[in-house]
Amino acid sequence: MSLLQEVWQAVKAIGTGMATVHKRVYEEAPTEFYPYVKPELPPVSVQSLALVENEDGSERCIVCLQCERACPAQVITIERHRNPEGKGFLIDRFDIDLVNCMYCAACVEACPVSSIVTIQDFEMSTYDLQTLKADIDFLHEQARRARQWYSPKFGVELRTDDGRIEKAPPEMQPGGLAEILKPAEEVDS
C-alpha cells in the first residue's frame, strides 16, 4: 500500500469515527439520571420481596412452607404452630435473608395465596448487612410501603390511597393475562 493510500485510510477512519460520535450525541440515551430521575421499572421486575397482609390487617400467608421448600438459596426460615382455635397454622417466625437471596422469585411462584410478592424497591444498599436479614415485621413494612407488587397468581396488585388493595387494570398486567385473571376471580367470589 502506498503512503498516500495509508494516509487516506487513516483520515477516512477518523472521519467515520467522528461522524458516528456526532450522530450519537443527539440521540436519546436509554438510561436515566438515576438519583434525580427514578427509573420506571416494569411491574414484574424482581427487586425485593415483601409479605402482603390482607386489607383488614390479617395475615394472608397460610404458612404452608411452599416458599421455604422452593427457595434455591435456602434463605427462608419459617416456624409455625397449629392454631389452637380454628384450623390452619400461625407464624412464629418468618425470616428471609435478603443478603443471600438471589432474587429468583421461585418463592413467589410457589406461594399458593400470593402472600409473598416481588416489589420494585431496589434501593436496598446499606452499611450494615444485618439490616437486610429480614424478619416478618420488615417484610410487612416493605409491603405497606409498596404501591404495587406482582405475583404470578394474582398478577399486579395496587395499593390505593385509602389503603385498599386493588387489582391493576389489564394494560398494566404482564403476559399470560388469561391465567392471571382466572384465579383472581375465584378469590374475589
Binding site: L41, P42, V44, S45, V46, M102, Y103, C104, A105, A106, T118, Y150, P174, G175
Partner: peptide, 11 residues
C-alpha cells in the same frame, strides 16, 4: 426485564 422480571439472571 419486561417479560422475565430480571435483566441478567432471569430464571
Amino acid at each position: 426485564e419486561k417479560t422475565a422480571g430480571a435483566r441478567m439472571l432471569p430464571n
